[in-house]
Design a protein around this nucleic acid. Structure first.
Length: 515
RNA sequence: GCCCCCAUCGUCUAGGGGACUAGGACGUGGCCCUUUCAAGGCCAAGACCGGGGUUCGAAUCCCCGUGGGGGCACCA
């Protein structure tokens, strides 16, 4: 028996580990991301797409987008468009796909019906599949009986025993049918997974899976295998949810006489608690953003989302964690994919978001921030934001926080709670007097120059026998309306003398009203 | 119930028989810096699931147990 570790060295397509293979994989890979348009793109799907994309770009290969829409009942209008939008936001362009076309078009499975039908026939003709006329009702009944007997629910093989003549006649007679794969009754099937090595399963535990439904459309088992082969996919990346049917897929490839692709079954993503597959809801009732476009909405930048996604189940070395897309394209390696499931960690997303925000040029950040101010109904110009960005760049973790932090700069007035204007360990009267003296200081200026203003205000604090923090605290609330703000002096400079005076005066009034 | 996969700090992970007193990151706590909040710097607590083997030597290889995850549809 080969241990997984040995298997890894045995197969060429795993030759990505630099320490063992000096040359990274250089032959161009053809990889596909094949989502179903049954809902919104999930961060799990986004991660799969990312790894696909990285492998394609790293090897100068091709990234294919294929839409697996063979389930008409679960089809969600608009889902396909959202997938496009999410991938685009994350920064992944596909080379072939429904919208851009390509040498293996069409890329929407619902448009490839004839291909699957023909392949299903081929399987029947070669004795690897058979027509089944059992009704859903009968199947449900059989399943129920099996469960009552504590057996694994499985097709009982009734139609497998039909003669091919009988089957043909019934089919020609117009009876509804499906095509089932004729899984070997005994023996075992071994598939080779890049991450886990050999996976062997007794054929007897496999079912005679339906590969073509009565509506004439294929199930995943047929459609994906046929397309992956026809589209010349070299690496199949999917989550470990497919491990149970992996042997079936190997068998289907064998039945057609096709060469197996490199199979890569990635671990699934778990809820932050580590309990269960990632879902929208969690034990506490809180919900996290599990869709890339929600992340966008919440003020996360795609650079951070990609960085975060990449590190869930993949790692580079024992210290490097900050990656941009080009770094990832350069450093990604299948050999470093983790076999164990990963609980998602949203606080780490926050961390990466802060890191990436701080890594942007001021120009980049201005461009990214502008829409958030506009969404908050603040009319802000490029030039204005340009002066604000240096004050907030290292203070925000998400883009929308910029509005909370600096929105007061663009609003007409501020209405602080009078209580908040009272300085620490001070009375309202003392606070009002401090404001009055500050007004006098500010009035001395033609222009509020940071250095001089700070000097004068510190001097004032000393004269008033106040700590700098006490005075600045009062002024901060007076001028920004907030307890937390960008640095006070710079903020006052940005606001300008007249607005500062206006706000200080109204603060003084508010304090007087407290007496 | 049956089948499959997985197992290092709370979480993500490094680790490929000796370099392990087990490294990093997030989070947490403390200190420094400081006009608030951040950022930054320093420090701390915190893990090899258990038991058997193999070996001079095991976090690392094997087996069993346990735990976790996934799957058992005319869904993908």
């Amino acid at each position: 028996m080969n241990s997984p570790a040995r298997v890894r060295f045995t197969y060429d397509f795993t030759s990505q580990r630099p320490s063992f293979h000096p040359t990274m994989m250089t032959s161009p890979a053809r990889v596909r991301f094949a989502p179903s348009p049954t809902g919104r793109l999930h961060i799990g799907g986004a991660r799969t797409a990312l790894y696909d994309y990285l492998l394609a770009r790293q090897t100068k290969g091709v990234f294919v987008l294929r839409i697996e829409d063979t389930d008409r009942k679960r089809f969600v209008p608009g889902a396909e468009e959202e997938i496009y939008e999410a991938l685009a936001w994350l920064g992944m362009e596909w080379d072939e796909g429904p919208d851009v076309g390509g040498p293996h078009a069409p890329y929407r499975q619902s448009e490839r019906g004839d291909i699957y039908l023909e392949h299903a026939e081929r399987l029947v003709d070669s004795g690897n599949a058979y027509y089944c006329f059992c009704t859903p009702e009968r199947l449900a009944r059989v399943r129920k009986e099996q469960q009552a007997r504590k057996e694994a629910p499985r097709y009982d093989g009734l139609c497998r025993r039909l003669s091919s003549e009988d089957a043909r006649d019934r089919k020609l007679g117009g009876e509804a049918y499906v095509v089932r794969f004729k899984t070997p009754l005994d023996g075992e099937t071994t598939g080779v997974d890049v991450i886990r090595g050999e996976i062997t399963v007794a054929n007897a535990t496999l079912d005679d899976y339906i590969v073509l439904k009565s509506d004439g459309l294929p199930t995943y088992h047929l459609a994906a295998m046929v397309d992956d082969h026809l589209m010349e996919i070299t690496h199949v990346l999917r989550t470990s949810e497919w491990l149970p049917t992996f042997p079936l897929h190997v068998l289907i490839y064998e039945a057609f006489g096709w060469e197996q692709p490199a199979w890569v079954h990635m671990s699934v993503l778990l809820n932050p608690s580590g309990k269960g597959k990632l879902s929208k809801r969690h034990g506490s009732g809180k919900s996290h953003a599990v869709h890339p476009l929600d992340l966008k909405e919440l003020g996360y930048v795609p650079e951070a989302a990609v960085n975060w996604l990449a590190l869930m189940g993949w790692s580079y070395d024992d210290r490097t964690e900050f990656f941009n897309m080009p770094d990832l394209i350069d450093k990604f390696s299948l050999a470093k994919l983790s076999a164990s499931p990963a609980a998602v960690n949203f606080s780490k997303l926050d961390h990466f978001n802060g890191l990436h925000i701080r890594s942007f040029s001021e120009q980049e950040l201005v461009a990214k921030l502008l829409p958030y101010f506009h969404a908050a109904n603040l009319s802000v110009t490029d030039e204005q934001l340009w002066r604000v960005v240096p004050l907030i760049q290292e203070r925000i973790r998400t883009l929308d926080e910029a509005v909370d932090m600096a929105g007061f700069l663009f609003r007409d007035g501020v209405r602080p709670d009078p209580q908040e204007l009272v300085g620490k360990n001070m009375t309202p009267a003392e606070s009002a007097s401090a404001v009055r003296r500050s007004i006098e200081v500010v009035q001395e200026f033609d222009q509020l120059e940071n250095d001089r203003l700070e000097f004068s205000l510190r001097e004032l604090a000393e004269k008033l026998n106040l700590k700098v923090g006490q005075l600045f605290g009062i002024l901060r609330v007076a001028v920004t309306g907030q307890r937390v703000s960008p640095p006070l002096i710079e903020t006052m400079g940005l606001l300008g003398k007249s607005i500062v005076l206006e706000r200080l005066e109204s603060a003084q009034e508010a304090l007087n009203s407290l007496k």
